[in-house]
């Protein structure tokens, strides 16, 4: 018997491998046309042959994603603080924000292309537009939900609104903020790939759409897998940062709902 913890650790690897083997077996047993569904071995072969463009385009996607994400963080923190600061602004902006957030961002890409041309700028902007919302909501929530009694304690000491924001609001909003980053980075990634697929000349999304028109299905799938790897890596990075920066929140089961 393996100890439970070792089994738990091995489980993700085992499942991933198992899925690959099952996939390979299905392709082989039912003799599936590689144009419909290439086998993992064919995908791996294609990835090895085309490693150079794959790497270059992965790099391009990573760049547009991170650039859009960085803008989203800056913008999201500022807007979140403004909204968390004042109930009136919160009320005023709320419908606009919800309306904006419910627009599928794919629909915005053609407009961005008309404004900025085909290239990385629409991808960066799409990544930004799709990912800032959760940051705003979380920062604002963290700031706005200070316990009223704690606020009374501080106000009876002569604390100004800014004191309360600095001493309580911002530290309190941190777990919400770092929690939202891992959601936002995933969304930013979706945004940049969608935009690259529609209108770009670099990035995995572009590579996949070109490979698709040439019927190079193994390469399309290799692109998909590159995307999955990048996505997992970025999510894991921000989940790790979240753990490290806000340990007290995990320990005190504060913000358990987020």
């Amino acid at each position: 018997m393996m100890p439970a913890s070792l089994m738990e650790r091995a489980a993700p690897v085992a499942f991933t491998l198992g899925l690959g083997i099952l996939w390979e077996a299905i392709c082989w047993l039912f003799n599936i046309d590689p144009i419909i569904l290439p086998a993992p071995s064919a995908i791996a072969e294609s990835a090895v042959t085309h490693w150079k463009p794959l790497l270059r385009h992965s790099g391009a996607t990573m760049w547009t994603t991170l650039a859009g994400f960085a803008i989203a963080v800056a913008f999201g923190v500022v807007l979140g603080m403004v909204i968390g600061w004042s109930r009136a602004i919160y009320r005023g902006l709320y419908p606009v924000m919800v309306g904006f957030n419910s627009i599928p961002k794919v629909a915005v890409v053609p407009i961005l292309v008309i404004w900025f041309g085909i290239g990385e700028i629409p991808a960066i902007l799409t990544a930004f537009l799709i990912s800032f919302f959760p940051i705003v909501v979380n920062v604002a929530t963290g700031l706005a939900t200070t316990e009223p009694e704690l606020e009374d304690v501080l106000r009876a000491l002569g604390a100004r609104k800014l004191d309360i924001i600095l001493k309580v609001g911002i530290p309190r909003a941190q777990p919400y903020f770092f929690g939202s980053l891992k959601v936002a980075i995933t969304l930013a990634f979706v945004g940049s790939v969608v935009s690259e697929t529609i209108a770009a000349n670099a990035g995995i999304g572009y590579l996949m759409s070109v490979a698709g028109t040439n019927f190079q299905m193994p390469l399309v799938f290799a692109g998909l897998i590159a995307l999955a790897i990048e996505g997992i890596a970025m999510y894991a990075l921000f989940a790790f940062i979240e753990m490290r920066t806000t340990r007290w929140a995990f320990r005190s089961s504060f913000a358990a709902g987020t």
């Binding site: 704690l150 304690v153 000491l157 002569g158 530290p171 309190r172 007290w248 504060f254």
Partner: peptide, 18 residues
């Protein structure tokens, strides 16, 4: 306005967990 000098404590300790 707020008195600026009073100490207050409530039913919940309301400590800052960080």
């Amino acid at each position: 306005g707020p008195v600026k000098i009073a100490g207050m404590a409530f039913q919940n300790a309301n400590l800052l967990p960080w």
